[in-house]
């Protein structure tokens, strides 16, 4: 099937916005989104003008030969970090450039990446809990504190996953996770179990730290995308506030 120029530019615009929105949702910085989208568009012989914000992307495609314009706006849906998709889309943009992919192949690849598997839930829970225990060890905790941090992280992350599944407000999810984790680890401080139970208390919520929003925020600021940087930074600070509120709840309950 030979597409007319108008259909072609329409189809490409949809694909590019899909790629851009996916990258934004899964935790790529603004620079990465711009580079990937521009690279794909230039392979097909189009120039792009791109406006990237946290909640929507706006794209104008321009073909100099046929003097055709096409603009479209796409909203991003909920933000969930998934580096497998970011990595896959970046690889795809290189494959497109090197192997002359057709639009259908690009669509198929995007659908494949969207369906790409997560780690089994139990593996995620165990690995993140292990990371929590590692943090505790790095702070100077011993075996008992490490076990407390492990359990607190495990249960807290489980609560967060369940809350996210039920589509609660993202900050509320983080608040409940932080609250549950600190209730568990705070109990050992309250009952004086182990030598330094406060290490476990301090490290049991570290798995929630908004690392990606904060780092992306600074990367965007350095790159000159001030508005995106500020938006991401405020998002990161709000997450930190939710964690602090969760901790505060446990502190008030146990009166530590």
């Amino acid at each position: 099937m030979v597409l007319s120029e108008k259909d072609k530019i329409n189809e490409l615009c949809q694909i590019l916005l899909e790629v851009g929105a996916l990258l934004m949702e899964t935790g790529a910085n603004t620079f990465r989104i711009r580079v990937t989208v521009t690279r794909i568009a230039s392979t097909f012989g189009y120039r792009t003008e791109l406006l990237i914000t946290h909640h929507a992307l706006m794209l104008t495609l321009y073909n100099e030969e046929s003097d055709q314009f096409f603009s479209r706006l796409k909203q991003t849906s909920s933000h969930r970090v998934n580096f497998k998709i970011v990595s896959g889309l970046s690889r795809m943009s290189w494959h497109i450039a090197e192997e002359n992919w057709s639009f259908e192949m690009v669509r198929k690849e995007i659908d494949r990446l969207k369906a790409v598997s997560h780690y089994p839930r139990i593996v995620t829970l165990l690995m993140v809990a292990l990371a929590g225990a590692s943090f505790c060890r790095l702070f100077g905790g011993e075996a008992i504190e490490m076990i407390v941090a492990f359990v607190a992280t495990f249960v807290g992350l489980f609560v967060r996953q369940e809350a996210v599944k039920r589509d609660f407000n993202p900050y509320l999810c983080i608040f409940s996770a932080a609250f549950v984790s600190s209730i568990i680890s705070g109990a050992t401080v309250y009952l004086h179990i182990g030598n330094n139970p406060e290490y476990a208390f301090a490290t049991s919520v570290l798995y929630l730290i908004p690392g990606i929003p904060l780092i992306n925020s600074l990367l965007d600021l350095l790159d000159g995308n001030i508005i995106n940087g500020v938006v991401r930074g405020i998002n990161g600070l709000t997450i930190a506030l939710s964690i602090a509120l969760g901790l505060l709840g446990a502190i008030l309950i146990y009166n530590i």
């Binding site: 935790g27 970090v81 998934n82 580096f83 497998k84 990595s87 896959g88 997560h118 780690y119 593996v123 995620t124 690995m127 993140v128 809990a129 292990l130 990371a131 929590g132 225990a133 590692s134 943090f135 060890r137 790095l138 992350l157 798995y207 690392g211 990606i212």
Partner: peptide, 19 residues
Amino acid sequence: WLGFAATGFAVLFNVPPRT
């Protein structure tokens, strides 16, 4: 322990297993 802390977050962010 530092390595495990980094890997735990990597799994949370769902990086490709080969990395």
